[in-house]
Design a protein around this nucleic acid. Structure first.
Lengths: 320, 320
DNA sequence: TCAAAAGTGTTATCCTTACACCCATGT
DNA sequence: ACATGGGTGTAAGGATAACACTTTTGA
């Protein structure tokens, strides 16, 4: 049996909140120059009864924020995921969590900031149509990367992966494959982290704003998981105020899913599934006819096998 | 910052194979008297480049088995998940993996054994109708547990959970909620592990065969994940021989899902999705008319957004 | 009066489910 | 003959997607 020295367990959290139509995450300053990072802290095997308890304690300490919903995402342990490891530091293994917070639950202290998560993964936001970045930068450079493969077989594998994840050819965009897309861009040297992790200079423009260590990979994991989860569990209501209009709910779903939804069908599906119930109140006007306010109907979880917001995607055309 | 002493990372694997109509897992002897356990080994931060690499190395060392498909499940870190921790051992945190092996790929050495996974979670096998254990033991004792709650509110919560997970009332059985069911039985003291972990004697009959440490919880996580995954990723073919008849594929899906499927619709769905293609060969007779042999069609993953076997459940009646 | 948003109604299409039935082989 | 498994056809019902249209407010 080999030695097991030098392991340290970190707990990191992607804490998501909604701030008018933008999904935001909580970031803290990091030792890396020019990059922020996710809040994280050490796991204390003496004091923490569970990993999740350690996470909650750490987030309170670091950001003064008490978490509501939290779920474990994945454990990241690749060598050199933290560049500091090269200079002799211990091997950090990080257990990543996804947490949801209601906007305004706690005010962050000045050192922290809520930032639009699409700043870091801009190609994931299709609400305004195909992001320009994809056609102007990503696709050409990915094609060059495919062509640069040494063998025909490897070329084909790269092309298949590119087409599948970025919806080239006749494939359709799958908004859940966030991690697959990030990992492809990482391998193809299109994000600043690939060069940084190899200690090499960056070639060409990098896509999106980098984060410390492997935190962008953790963010990609969280985004994919949350996009999948809102479809079969009512987690979106963890991000909503207690009462909301149907359009607010739709905008929230669109923000997370990164695409526009079909208004009428969205309302019908939400009502049909019994996810919400009217409060009887009417919203203050917001530019048009006043709307009825709804609240989450807790009963659904007992009735429906997979209660979540279905996402009737909107194909062509403008908003609605 | 508190101390981070005494953490050890273990890697454990639920390695699944199919042996005529029974899903089996690989087990090894354990220090616990009277219980087997999952194969596991230490993570070596010096030698292992990634967690998964450490897992593969460990499984080769311990069981002489080279893994094909492997995916990370969850990281288990609750205090006293290993009873040995009470006698002063270090705090073991375990990263659990799900791995799939083709039957007969490697012969296990005598110390290991492939065992039907339903031995440990017998209430999960509905292929022969509702398991007798549920009506005779589980439901009565869960009802007693609900009634034993101190407050009305807690009683209601317990009842809701019981109804939801075990499909009482008008709820339907959700074959993916394996972990939720195990955790409910654990809390209600219906599995041997609850008593063991508290150092108390077991009250009444325990349901299913126990495993070492928290390995039954890890198994429940793996079963739930695999049942979910076969529906949208073609992982089932990792468990099949290179060529198979449609009935063999159906039996495999039934074994994993723990329920009977509708024959005609299963065939249609599999064909319709383009998951398989004919090999042109005909199977040796197996009791009826010879059947065509099929193989997995790799192309699907590029065509369909979520290629997996849909599971047309069979409601009333007998087999087919 | 127009823009913006709230709502209602209807139809075509696809997918799932269920049922009925015929085919080929071994005992 | 009949049991066992292989394989096809088709019709009902439900969910989804797409379209058209009315209502109510503020600027």
């Amino acid at each position: 049996m080999r030695s097991v020295s030098g392991v340290v367990i970190e707990l990191s959290a992607v804490i998501v909140a909604l701030s008018d139509d933008a999904p935001t995450i909580l970031l803290v300053p990091s030792e890396d120059v020019g990059a922020q990072g996710l809040p994280f802290g050490p796991f204390d095997p003496v004091g923490d009864r569970t990993l999740e308890e350690g996470l909650r304690r750490g987030v309170v300490q670091q950001a003064g924020l008490t978490l509501g919903y939290a779920e474990q995402l994945y454990t990241f342990g690749d060598r050199f995921r933290d560049p500091q490891e090269r200079s002799g530091g211990p091997r950090p293994v990080s257990v990543g969590y996804l947490a949801l917070a209601r906007q305004g639950d706690d005010a962050p202290s000045p050192r922290e900031s809520w930032t639009d998560w699409y700043r870091f993964l801009p190609w994931e936001d299709w609400r305004g149509g195909t992001p320009g970045l994809i056609d102007s930068v990503i696709v050409p450079r990915l094609e060059a990367w495919c062509a640069a493969a040494t063998s025909k077989a490897e070329q084909q594998r790269r092309r298949d992966r590119t087409h599948l994840t970025f919806a080239l050819g006749d494939a359709t965009w799958d908004n859940e494959r966030v991690l697959e897309r990030y990992e492809l861009l990482y391998e193809a040297q299109l994000v600043a982290e690939s060069a940084r992790d190899q200690g090499k200079p960056l070639l060409g423009v990098a896509t999106g704003t980098p984060l410390a260590k492997d935190h962008r990979r953790i963010l990609a994991t969280a985004m994919g998981r949350l996009r999948a989860k809102i479809k079969y569990r009512p987690v979106i209501f963890e991000l909503m105020p207690p009462a909301f209009t149907l359009l607010q709910l739709q905008r929230a779903a669109e923000a997370l899913a990164g695409g526009r939804l079909h208004k009428q069908n969205f309302r019908r599906l939400v009502a049909h599934e019994g996810l919400v119930e009217p409060t009887g109140q009417i919203s203050v006007q917001t530019g048009g006819r006043p709307a009825e306010l709804f609240r989450f109907r807790r009963g659904v979880v007992l009735e429906r096998p997979a209660p979540g917001v279905r996402l009737p995607v909107k194909r062509g055309g403008k908003s609605s």
